[in-house]
Design a protein around this nucleic acid. Structure first.
Lengths: 103, 103
DNA sequence: TTCAACAGTTCAATATTCCCGAACTATTAA
DNA sequence: TTAATAGTTCGGGAATATTGAACTGTTGAA
């Protein structure tokens, strides 16, 4: 099946990073990955009503923004937060966003 | 002419704030306002090729996100950053974003 | 007083992006 | 093999964004 492409963080513009975070579903997934590390796509889902095609697209966008890495493990895709990479590229940003979540 | 509505920051969700910042034109305007304080719409513009209707819409969105305040002064609309309000609502967020601008 | 120029908004049409059902691919277990 | 599982990709409709054109309100000049 598809193998995933992960950008170098230098190539990720701030706009894209912010855009990826500017959505409650994606933000929820990032928060979950920040807490749990290593989640399959369905486990990373923000709720169990979201269609899987939508979920897949959200995860693709998070990948493109350099926020997550996805690797295949059997028939699951395992997602992890690229926190170190992301923090090096955008110091303090993810912390600030996550700290301000939970409304 | 139109008088502007400014939301209470408690009513601004994080998603909206991030969405407002997740655009190079708007981010440029915010950065300019962070540096200059009190700019007319045209002076706040990120470049001189952007259509004024587009500019007006961007500013409307920044208002809705609680990022700027707009008041009328003669035939100009004067925009200022609502930094204190925004920082109280989303501590550290704007700093982190502005610090990571300039690619 | 007009009148024209200016600063910006609003409207409506087009262009772009997003969402999600349906079809598909790949892996595993039976 | 086959069926179930885990997820991707595709395509069309829904939602957003962009922008030219028309409009509102303000000011300065004739």
């Amino acid at each position: 099946m598809a193998r995933f492409t992960h950008p170098r963080l230098e190539d990720v513009p701030l706009d894209l990073a912010l855009h990826a975070l500017a959505d409650p579903n994606r933000l929820g997934m990032v928060a979950r990955l920040a807490a749990t590390e290593r989640l399959s796509c369905t486990d990373a889902a923000p709720c169990d009503t979201i269609p899987k095609s939508t979920l897949s697209n959200h995860l693709k966008l998070l990948r493109a923004a350099g926020l997550i890495e996805t690797t295949q493990a059997g028939r699951e895709m395992i997602n992890t937060l690229r926190r170190a990479d992301f923090d090096r590229r955008f110091p303090g940003l993810l912390d600030a966003v996550l700290a301000n979540r939970i409304d």
